[in-house]
Design a protein around this nucleic acid. Sequence first.
RNA 1: GCCAGCGUAGCUCAAUCGGCAGAGCGGCGCAUUCGUAAUGCGUAGGUUGGGGGUUCGAGUCCCUUCGCUGGCUCCA
Length: 644
Amino acid sequence: MSFKISVKDYGVLSFEEPITPYNISRTLGFKDIVSAKFNNRLLDIRTPIEEDGEMSFVYLQDSEAAEVYRHTMAHIMAQAVIRIYGKENVRLGIGPAIENGFYYDFEIVNGKITEEDLQLIEKEMNKIVQENLHIERIEMIKEKAIELMKKENQVYKLELIENIEDDVVTFFKQGEFTDLCRGPHLPSTGLVKHFKLLSVSGAYWRGDERNPMLQRIYGTAFLCKEDLENYLNSIQEAKKRDHRKLGPALDLFVIDTEFAPGMAFFTANGTTVLNELMRFSRELHTESGYKELMTPLVMSETLWRISGHWDHYKENMYFTSKEEQSYAIKPMNCPGHIIVYKSKPVSYRDLPLRYFEFGRVHRYERSGVLHGIFRVRGFIQDDAHIFCTPEQVKQEVMGVINLTKRIYSQFGFDYSVELSTMPEDHMGDEIIWERATRALKSALESANLSYTVNEGEGAFYGPKIDFHIKDSLGRMWQCTTIQLDFLMPERFNIVYTTPSGEQQQPVMIHRAIYGSLERFFGILIEHFAGAFPTWLSPVQVAVVPIADRHIEYAKGIHNKLQAEKIRIEIDARRETLGYKLRDLQIRKIPYVLIVGDKEIQNRTVSIRTRHGTNLGSMKLEDFENAIRKEIEQRSLKTLLGEEA
RNA sequence: GCCAGCGUAGCUCAAUCGGCAGAGCGGCGCAUUCGUAAUGCGUAGGUUGGGGGUUCGAGUCCCUUCGCUGGCUCCA
């Protein structure tokens, strides 16, 4: 047996016997490695290697090391939990490193972990760090490991081992604590000292709600104190952008939890923003050849039986009845659009037929999932259904992708794209699903979008492409969705006439770009931290007369700009100038026009931005032209000299 | 829905061990007419989420219900 390893910054070495990265590093005089990258996989330094490959060493300061030390931190936490609650009372689930931190799932027999306990656990973790325990990697024959786990009553670990294919499994041991684990881990528990436990929550074993619920502790860890503090501060800062906080504070919406949990009441300000969003969307949809519809909110239950919602979506629907007739409040707009489609004969010449609607839908959502206006029970979709021939599918999907890119670029945020395939609970043949999935893939590739695949996450009627946007706390939310559907046209038996006079079934593409206006609005609030671009700002300009004798002039400005459809208000409150400026700035009004004696004399306005910058005086006409242009262009930036 | 925590004035938060429900901001009133982030004084505002219980006495302890937060599952 002989194999070669190419070590970065050294050269190629030949070995006859299995060797660990640690031993290689020692031989070559590299010190203090915490992990090794071997053929692009992060390895524990104690893992014996016996094959050709390329290796580079990972040191504590390297970015790749975070995964390793956070994983070790999860073990330290588990060790602390066991010390506190007693070995016989703790059953371990899984404990991986995640983005920015780590977690571990526990079952505490006849007990529970509360937020208060986190301090206690942190204290014990600090002890373990102080003890600087040596971490050992142990290989064990699977049968023996199963026996051991049975003896220790570690039912979850047992399940994990039974699902491992190899004959040998690995454990990591630090002091009295041993855990089934693939690794990699640090050489000892004393290397990373700065950590914080963040929260405790429930998590189903293996993510399945039929399984028991374990308790999950989330934490984070960093090499130096500053990084930890910066991270904790960034969480605090992000919380200030939270739309649930900013929305009511900026008077955009309220949620009345007593009378309508999971429903948003948009105030005048919020409605203004939504109207602007809809206006923008309508313009683009018209340009892209969509026809706007309005369809009923309440339709017969029978309709929903035909559509398949009754069989696959009933749990999420609201029902009502009158005169012994049962009705459903629509959870989707598709059946309504199909009724319009069916209302007259369709020729191949009419296709693709793009029906668009700002459709208000209601879906029952379990109480625990509601979240501000990101996840509600009633929302408005910028929904459309494209009816087309099978040949037109790819082009139509690409059209939607382009429209999506166009809309996103207006706001300037990043997104990720996912393709979701056939779920367990689905309608129709697998062959149809495969064809549809291929069409979506092909469109994605032609559009040059990189994407990840979510197996089994599609809608019940077809596979879909989703665009996700990050919220202020790093959670991803689905906005745009493009779903292919070969099934609903069949169930409703809709057809078009082909050139040869035959009746053929169209393909249906369900798509929404904002997704839900509520969610998109919420994302915007967080993205701009409430300081919307001027075209979206509920109030675009405030005029502040310095003293009563300036009110008349201020009113003139107000009336003039208002006549130009600029959203302007006058602040003639009997308060000091400083007080009003502070108040208007907190409300994030893009421009404040201050008028006093000087301005009246020169027919100017003094301009102050919501960032507190004094832009000096300007002729009213010049200001008017600039802001009008800024609004017309729906500019992300101000045209008056600084970032909007 | 599930696990844990939380729910006091419009908002942010006090109220010791179970012992008279309070403050700041905001609102309202009066005075102040002011040049780029908070003028001063006064005043109203509460069934402590709802219901039940323990107790001489409950914001505080127990039960229940509704809601919220963090996650899990689910989803636009």
